[in-house]
Amino acid sequence: MAANAAPITATDSLSQALKANIIPNQEYLLQGSVLDSAVEVLLHRLRGLCDNVDAGPETFDDQEVCFSLRDPNQQSTPLTLRVRKALDARDMPYQLRYIGQPDLGDKNRPTVVRSSLDIACSGMLIEFLNELGCRIEFEYSVKGYMFRKGRMKITVAKVFKISQSSMPPEPISQSYLVELSVLAPQGQDAIGEDMRAFADQLRPLVQLDKIDYKRLGHMSVT
């Protein structure tokens, strides 16, 4: 009898999950930076504040490539997709990520909110994206430390420009990028307050803020 019942497909369970609003597809984000000279102090403080301190800070070394897919008939903003690969753990899958437009909201909203979808992929991903017509926009590597505090993720990482020759990668600036983020289902805005509180504990060492890189880009053009 049971065999006659329609099998539950992946699409079914996905739409069910969507309906129940349990998919963590919103990223709450705060960004900041710390100068190279002060990064040790920050790491020390984070080790005191965060959960995963027994084994020492977790390191990561990733390479990220940003692809864009544009619709030739439209002048709209091209779709961008990001592919991430761990350089220090080659057997880990590639990560394909879509990040939506950051929504800063008004002054009362504590963090940036943007939609975010992640999926693990095989190494065929790059070819697949090329076949789709995606082109590489830019790439960089990030190397640094990762901390956890409850649902919050804190990364302290150096961003490098990928050099074409065998030259060692060149850092973008004399600072480490600091990001505090949480992935949560839609409507869980309370987490933003927790993040604010945590960010306040890192002051004045690091100033974690809502930063709109789109507006910054405009500012530098004009």
């Binding site: 930076s33 830019f138 990028l177």
Partner: peptide, 21 residues
Amino acid sequence: THSIADTHALVTAVGTGKGLR
């Protein structure tokens, strides 16, 4: 211990690829 200019440079670089192309 931090510089706003560096924060902006890093965030724009990661967000839009400025200086990374």
